[in-house]
Write a protein that binds this DNA or RNA. Structure first.
Lengths: 337, 337
DNA sequence: CGCTGCCCTGACACCGCTTGCAGAGCAAGA
DNA sequence: TCTTGCTCTGCAAGCGGTGTCAGGGCAGCG
C-alpha cells in the first residue's frame, strides 16, 4: 500500500538503516549517498510511518494540549499560538479536551498521555487538582499556561496585579462603590478568580475602602453569567457606580444587562474587564490586556526546549505583563451618585 | 518502563493474543478469562501503546481536523463540536493548521495524513484548490464543513440563501440602497463569498433593484477589514442606508466604524451579518444564525460512520438551515434618506 | 608495511501489538 | 462411537521503522 523504507532503500541501492540516517540528517552518511536517498524518497513520495518510528524510537513527535474549553476565546487563541509553533517544528498537535470542566476527572492519565505525546501543554487547569498534580509530578515534560507551578515552565499573568490595575483605574476615576463580577460562588478549583479577587480587594484597601460582600456577583466566566450577575447588581438598593468584571466575556454580558435596562456603560455605570478580547474594542470596553496568543506560542517554545528540540527561548518563563486599555466604558461617576 | 501487554498476559496467565482480544472486546474470549485479563490490566495501570497498535493494525484511532484558522470563532466552534464527538468515541484528535491561509500550499498531503489519521475533517477549505482536491480524490475518508462536494459527507449552510435572507430582511424594512461587505476583492479560492454575493444580488433583483458595484466593499472576513470597508462605504457621496456584512465579525468592525463617526447602527444605518456569533447579541446585531457547533459535531459523526465506527447519523448530510435573527441593528431607513 | 582510528555502511534484533492459523476441548448429531 | 462444528486459546509472523554493533575501506603515522 504505502511505500516503505525498504522500497526507498532498494531504489537508492542502500540499506534501510542508511535511508533512516540519511532522511533524519544524522551524521556519518556520505553526501552523495544522502542525495541519492533523498532523491529516491522524493521520487517515491515516501513519508515515514509515524507509528513505526514511534514504536521503534519511543519518541512520538507530537505534543498534546490539555484544555477544559476549546471554543472560548482565551483557549482557542492559546491553541492557535501553540499550533503555530508545533506546525513550524514539524510536530503533531494532539488536542485533548477535558470533557465537562466541572467534573475534571477526564484529565488524561500520565500513562495515556505519555503513550501519545512527548510532552503536554496544560491550559488553565487548576494546579491543585489531584489529577493535574499527578500529571505534573510525573516526569512527563509539561508546560503550563495560566498558572505558576514551581519547577515547571509556565506562562501566566499576575492575576492579582491585573485586577488591581483594573480596580485602581476605576478608583482613579473617582468611583467608590465598585462591584466585582467573579467566577463561581463555590470555591472553584480554578485559582484565577481568587487571585483576581485579592487584587480587587487590595486596590480598594489601598485607598481605605472596605470590600463590601454585597457587591460581589458571580458570572461563571461566561457571557450569560455576566449578564445575570449584572442584573443582580442592578437590583441592589444601592447600586454600584462601577463594575470590575474578571473577564471580558462576562463584561460583554454585563453590557447586555445594562442595555436591556436602558443604561449606558461609561455613562450610567462604568465597566471594565480583563483579557483584551478583540470584541472589547467593538463595544468600547476598557480592559486589562494579556498577550494570549504569544502566551500559547511561548508555552510551546518552552516545551520544545525542555524536549531538547530547540534552544531555550530567550525570555525566561513566568509572568508576562498586562496593559490597561482605557476605553469609553469607564468614566468618572456622574454627580450625585 | 511502561507496562506492556506481555506483563498483563503473564499476570492473567494467558497469552498476549488473548489479552489483546479481551481488552478490545472481541468475541471468542471466555467471560471468566476476560474478567481476569481486565482485572490484571487495571491492576497494572496498563494502557495499550497506540504506536504499536497502529503499526500492527493499520488503524490509527485518530482523526485529523484540517483548518486554515484556529482562533477565529467559526473555526474554534466547529473544532469544539468535533472534539466532543471524538472524545466520546475515544479517538485522538489531531489538529492540523494550514499555515498561512493565503498560501494554502501547506495542506497536508494524502500520504502524510493517511499515516497519522484514519480520516479527516476539512473545515472551510476551498474544494477547488488543487491540493484539497487531491485530498478528496484520494480514498481517505473525509468529511467537509463549509462546502458541498459530491460523494463526500458534508455540512454547510446554503450561503446564497442566507445572504438572500439577510438582504431581503433589509429590503422588507424599506431599504433600497443596500451595500455589501464581502471578503476579498481578488477572486479568492474560497467560494463562500461568491455564493453570498449571488444571494445578495438575487434578493435585490427580485424587487427590481440592479446591484450597484460601487456599493461593494471588501473586509477580508476580519473585524479590522470590516471596519475599513465600512469606512469606505461611508465616504461615498451617496451612502447606503443599510449594509449586509458577509460575516458577523466584519459587522463588528463595521459597527466600530459607525461609532467612530458618531453614527448608530439601527438608527443612522442598518447592519446585518451572517453567523450567529455570540457577540452579535452583545452589540444587538441582526444576523443569520448558523448552527456551527452542531455542524462540527455532525461532520465528526458522519466521519465516524464512514469509518464504520458508529451507525450513520440519523440526519442526512448536506445543507443545514439558518435562521434570521432580527435585532436592534436593523430598522427602517430614516425619512429623507 | 603494519597499525590505529575515523568514516561510512549493512545486518539484524528489537519496539509492542494484531491477527491468521492451527489445535484443543467439548457438545450435539449421525 | 465417530464426525462435525463450535468456542476458546496460543503460536508466531509480521507491521515499518530505529539503533546497536561489527566490519570494510582508507588516510595518517610510526
Amino acid at each position: 500500500m504505502a511505500v516503505t523504507i525498504r522500497e526507498v532503500a532498494e531504489a537508492a541501492g542502500v540499506s534501510t538503516a542508511t535511508v533512516s540516517r540519511a532522511l533524519r540528517g544524522l551524521p556519518y552518511v556520505d553526501d552523495a549517498t544522502r542525495l541519492r536517498v533523498l532523491a529516491a524518497a522524493a521520487n517515491l513520495d515516501y513519508v515515514v510511518s509515524p507509528s513505526a518510528s514511534r514504536l521503534a524510537s519511543g519518541r512520538t513527535g507530537s505534543i498534546a494540549v490539555v484544555t477544559p474549553f476549546i471554543a472560548r476565546w482565551f483557549f482557542s487563541t492559546v491553541l492557535s499560538g501553540v499550533e503555530q509553533v508545533t506546525h513550524d517544528a514539524g510536530l503533531d498537535l494532539l488536542l485533548l479536551g477535558v470533557g465537562d470542566p466541572d467534573r475534571p476527572s477526564e484529565v488524561p492519565t500520565e500513562q495515556r498521555l505519555r503513550q501519545r505525546a512527548d510532552g503536554a501543554i496544560i491550559v488553565a487547569l487548576p494546579a491543585d487538582d489531584p489529577e493535574v498534580r499527578a500529571l505534573l509530578n510525573a516526569n512527563l515534560p509539561v508546560s503550563i499556561v495560566g498558572s505558576l507551578v514551581p519547577d515547571v515552565p509556565c506562562v501566566a499573568i499576575d492575576d492579582a496585579e491585573a485586577a488591581r490595575k483594573a480596580t485602581a483605574h476605576l478608583l482613579n476615576l473617582g468611583h467608590r462603590r465598585i462591584a466585582v463580577i467573579s467566577g463561581s460562588r463555590i470555591g472553584s478549583i480554578y485559582t484565577t478568580q481568587e487571585h483576581r479577587y485579592r487584587g480587587y480587594c487590595d486596590a480598594l484597601s489601598a485607598v481605605g475602602i472596605e470590600p463590601d460582600p454585597t457587591l460581589v456577583a458571580f458570572g461563571q466566566f461566561t457571557r450569560e453569567g455576566g449578564e445575570q450577575a449584572m442584573g443582580e447588581l442592578l437590583n441592589l438598593t444601592l447600586t454600584p457606580t462601577a463594575v470590575f468584571c474578571m473577564s471580558d466575556e462576562m463584561a460583554f454580558g454585563a453590557s447586555v444587562a445594562l442595555r436591556r435596562r436602558g443604561l449606558v456603560a461609561g455613562v450610567d455605570i462604568s465597566l471594565i474587564g480583563i483579557d483584551g478580547h478583540p470584541q472589547s474594542e467593538v463595544i468600547d470596553l476598557s480592559t486589562v490586556e494579556q498577550p494570549v496568543e504569544s502566551m500559547g506560542r511561548f508555552a510551546a517554545e518552552s516545551l520544545l526546549a525542555v524536549l531538547g528540540l530547540t534552544p531555550p527561548p530567550v525570555r525566561a518563563p513566568g509572568l508576562v505583563s498586562t496593559r490597561l486599555v482605557s476605553r469609553g466604558s469607564t468614566a468618572s461617576p456622574r454627580d450625585g451618585r
